[in-house]
Simulated scan of single mutants.
Amino acid sequence: MVGIIFLSLVFYSLIFTAETDTGYIDHSVSNSSSHASDEPNILDLLKDLDEAALMLKLIDQVGLRDTLSSKGPYTIFAPYDLAFELLPDSIYNELMNNQTNLKHTLMYHIVKGAFYLFPPPDGHGAYNDQLLPSLISGKYVRLNIYQVGFTRLTAGGGPVIDGGNASNGAVYIIQNVMYPVPPGNIADVLMHNKSFSVLGKLVQKAGLMDYFKGGPFTMFPPTNEAFNKLSPDILNKYTQNTTLLKQLIEYHVLDRTLYTAGSYSGEIVVTVQGCALNLTVWYDTLWLNGVNNSQVIYLNYQVDNGVMHVVDTVLIPPVIH
């Protein structure tokens, strides 16, 4: 399983303008491949898109050209070149120096079937939390639709730009690299990632592990270090009372998928526990319930049933104070 690298990523997904987004999205779907056969294929379209030059180069490098030259159909979500440059150096180097991991990641950006995500007459639309089957068996690309002063469509949390319809599918440019490929659902991460061993044990004690196999959810999971900042008395208060423990955990969870591209500074979101969280963007970092309270130290960690934003401080619900 790919371990989480705790880095404060640039909060770039919040600052793209409406002009680069998709506009209105009709809530219907099709995987029809009935577009004209005289259109260029996916690779031809990518070649004509200056923004995706690196993606095209990497497709050749890992041996996916024949796949994308075939009849298909396929839909590709191609990160634009700057998205690769914005990756932390450790992740960028891992991808570029490990051909197996790179191919695995690129395959996750390619979907089986032609999905025309724009409203008629250009396409058939998309719907929120739609899952598209990638070339990796059992792994899906999640689409979300957000209202942030305009309608924004995201794939794997990245805003989507139309790249054109191809003879063998469709091309979209996305403003992020979908990395890592989701390692499993939230319960899988809590059970197997050592960075969340404390939270995992508490979720198990509260009887919520099966709950987190459902979803979709957004979780703000505190790290082990975050729990270590709590006094023993406070931690014991929760561990000895299952009702309070359940409330504490649920205060870190939303019952929907909220990527950063779908949120904004000052937004108030209601948790599963019932109390609200306030989102604040401050100097390219995301804070919960005000600056200097709980900082998100890793954004948009994809899981099969939603997304996780890792925090450095345990959030205490107001009703538990």
Rank of each mutant, 00 (worst) to 15 (best):
I76C: 04
S70D: 08
Y80A: 03
L58T: 01
F84M: 08
P40R: 14
L82R: 15
D129V: 05
A53R: 15
N41E: 07
D81K: 12
L102F: 07
G123Q: 11
D50R: 15
V62L: 01
L45S: 01
Q99G: 01
L56S: 12
H109D: 04
D66S: 14
A126T: 04
Y74D: 07
L58E: 03
S69H: 12
L68A: 06
I91K: 12
N97Q: 11
L86G: 02
H109F: 00
I91V: 14
L64N: 05
L86R: 15
R65N: 09
T100Y: 11
H124T: 07
N128D: 15
L56R: 15
L45E: 00
P119V: 08
D50I: 10
D89M: 11
V111T: 05
R65K: 15
F115Y: 15
L58I: 02
P88R: 00
D60T: 11
Y108A: 04
D66G: 07
L46H: 00
P73D: 09
I42S: 04
F84A: 06
I42A: 05
N101T: 06
S70A: 14
G123T: 06
L82D: 10
L49R: 13
D48L: 10
Y108T: 04
D129Q: 14
I59Q: 07
D122A: 13
L68I: 05
A78Y: 05
D48F: 04
R65I: 04
N93C: 04
F84D: 05
P73Q: 08
L117K: 02
D38N: 15
L46I: 00
